[in-house]
Simulated scan of single mutants.
Amino acid sequence: MRSISSLTGRLAAFVLACASLPALAAEPPPIFVLNSLDATVSVIEPVGWTEKTRIPTGKEPHHLYLTPDEHSLIVANSAGDSLTFLDPRTAEVQRVVYGIIDPYHLRFSPDMKWFVTAGNRLNHVDLYRWDGKEPKLVKRIPTGKTPSHIWIDGKSTTAYVTMQDSDELIAVDLATQTIRWRTPTGPMPADIFGIHDGKTLLVGLTGSDGVQVFDVAGAQPKLVGKIATGKGAHAFRAGGDGGRSVFVSNRVANTISRIDLRTLQVTDTYPVPGGPDCMDVSADGKTLYVTSRWAKKLSVIDLASRKVVRQVNVGRSPHGVWTLDHAKS
């Protein structure tokens, strides 16, 4: 019969051997792609680069946003008048909130008290109070034609919204729920990106070939410049490099430009086929995920080589893209 000490020794050796094995890596969170014409979300597994599943949503999901507590990813279904809440880690459907009228674009204020949506087809901006669980409508504000994208300043005082078909930028005062000012832009303004502590706004011109620069530090806005990027300048994404740059997708030119935020000059250009639209950046800042709107694909760009290294088939008219494992700024 083996001695107790012998068995103890073998057990200790086994435990030591197990401890020396490499730990199994946790499965990374999925990449979500909104298929606007299919009313679905593609859930992409970013190791084998396969589409794990497609989740039904309301009609025309275009944009998405993480809740302040980071427990839910909100998909805004503009023609479905609803919000679909997904688990950002598992892609499980948590709930659907109905009665949110025409939520094309959406954004939380930095203080997490306001939830703002742009009604693209119905020409209004809705201001909701957010109590951590439910949006409660405070004011519906009539705007110009086709509200497109929203950006909210760092102090949570002002929501800036582009008017795609009346070629305007408006500023909405959140305290009074009124329009503070409106100013003309170039053709078909789309996404907005704030820099210089919110004193400067970049506005992508989908109907032109670049980005307009507005000084909004004073009582009235001033157009102070334009950055040539490419035809169909549309969406922005922070560069993942600590606030030094921003990407803009040029949907018609089939390129993405990187803009240096100190010089406001284009420093890099990346060719991307199929009408590049929304973007996200990997946590290490090395990879750019882009929806190719007209090609029904998610394009993956290696930023060092400036090349598309893979594409994943998704649904029709892919628009918003997001993953929890992304660069913060």
Rank of each mutant, 00 (worst) to 15 (best):
D38P: 05
T8K: 13
D302R: 07
L137Q: 06
D38Y: 04
H71L: 00
R121G: 06
H63V: 05
S305T: 15
H105S: 15
R237M: 12
K231C: 00
G204E: 08
A304R: 13
G204N: 07
V216N: 07
G186D: 14
A159W: 04
I256R: 00
L324D: 04
V161M: 09
T185L: 12
K297M: 09
G275N: 00
V138N: 07
D197R: 13
F193Y: 15
L106T: 13
A304P: 04
V75I: 15
V300L: 09
G58N: 12
P28T: 10
P110T: 04
P184R: 09
V213N: 10
N250V: 03
S249H: 07
V213H: 11
V321W: 01
L16E: 14
D277R: 00
I100L: 11
T90K: 01
A238N: 01
G240I: 04
T267D: 15
Q94S: 10
D284Q: 09
R180C: 05
E51G: 02
T57I: 05
A233L: 03
V272E: 01
M279P: 06
S245Y: 12
V211K: 04
V125E: 07
E70A: 14
D302H: 06
S42H: 03
G58D: 10
P273R: 02
E168A: 14
R180G: 10
K296Q: 13
G58C: 12
T185I: 03
T183K: 13
A13D: 14
D87Y: 04
C18I: 11
Y128R: 03
P29E: 12
A13F: 08
R121H: 11
I227F: 06
P147S: 13
K328Q: 11
T157S: 10
P318H: 03
V93R: 10
V224P: 12
L21G: 03
V96D: 10
E60H: 14
Q220P: 07
W114V: 09
T157H: 15
V314D: 02
W294A: 14
G186R: 12
R121P: 00
T185W: 11
F115H: 01
G58A: 09
S78T: 12
G9F: 13
D302N: 15
L37Y: 11
W322S: 01
R89T: 03
H149R: 14
W294F: 15
G119S: 15
T146G: 00
L261T: 06
I256V: 14
F193E: 02
K133W: 00
V321F: 03
W322I: 08
L83A: 06
P30A: 11
